[in-house]
Write a protein that binds this DNA or RNA. Structure first.
Lengths: 155, 155
DNA sequence: CTATTATTGACTAAATAAGTCAAGAAATAG
DNA sequence: CTATTTCTTGACTTATTTAGTCAATAATAG
């Protein structure tokens, strides 16, 4: 499997957006996400662009624009996000063709495909909402999203 | 998690050795493993060296020398092999320190550590022997290991 | 019109993985 | 003891991937 910073940034960003949406109705700007999640904003642009193309995000240009989840945070799995950014998970040597060596499938082939399946399952079972809920929130609810901006550590 | 060609080569090589040992008593030479498993032999040297340093292999120099497993194939897990080559699996952004962002633990932190745990467990549960046994062997048992050499695709 | 914000694609830099090499040391067969 | 076989070592190069940058463009609210 592949799980790079880019994929982790993507998950952090999606969780950030999901969180902001859960407390306000506004669109979320790249630069705000970048600041909160400590992600280089020009890199984040690239990432959010892919998430949008994959229809996981909606974007609105212009003043008060930004990003929104395209569907409920309970309908987007971590696997959706990771696969969008990292591509299809594949641990095999042959790229899944089973032509590992001299046209034959090797034994570790199924070891790696089984591992893939395991990981995909793990990430598919968890929605953004699940992950958000897993957290003991660190700020009191009467504060606005803006006020607590610096405290949100959803990364 | 990290799982590169190097780690997969290592697993292939260990399975190859385990297999040869299960049919004969001889030490297994780098160049034979390299040929069967299609691994650049000078790269394989480097890999086997690490497996030896980690006491997963024993080596004997000189004519009829080569490598042997240091213990039973049922006592060496895939996790042992992968961790020896790839180092400790760590998917978190902070390197496990929980200082993800501004000194605070981020929410996805536990997502990634849980994923780590899951994968480690998966690989720990499988010994070399288990993986070998999972295979429907493709050659009849009356042939010698040497005769069937080219058919062994344990990769 | 102007300010704001996403969009695009091509670009560079840094890190990591993959692979090579040459010289050496150990063991053994003969 | 000598020639051959085989592992040992460490430094090296190259290729690939990841990470990050940038500048110009397009859309929209007010």
């Amino acid at each position: 499997m592949r799980l790079t910073k880019k994929g982790k940034y993507a998950v952090s960003a999606m969780l950030d957006i999901a969180f902001v949406q859960s407390t306000s109705n506004s669109y979320v700007k790249i630069c705000d996400i970048a600041e909160r999640q400590r992600i280089p904003s020009s890199y984040l642009e690239q990432i959010l662009r892919n998430l949008r193309k994959a229809d996981l995000l909606l974007a609105v240009t212009g003043p008060n624009g930004g990003y929104r989840l395209s569907k409920s945070s309970s309908d987007i799995s971590i696997a959706d996000v990771v696969q969008c950014i990292e591509g299809k998970i594949d641990s095999t040597r042959c790229g899944g063709t089973s032509n590992c060596i001299a046209g034959q499938e090797c034994l570790s082939h199924s070891l790696w495909t089984d591992l893939n399946t395991e990981m995909e399952l793990f990430l598919s079972k968890r929605s953004l909402e699940d992950v958000l809920k897993g957290r003991k929130v660190k700020f009191s609810s009467h504060k606005s999203a803006l006020e607590t901006k610096n405290m949100i550590v959803i990364g």
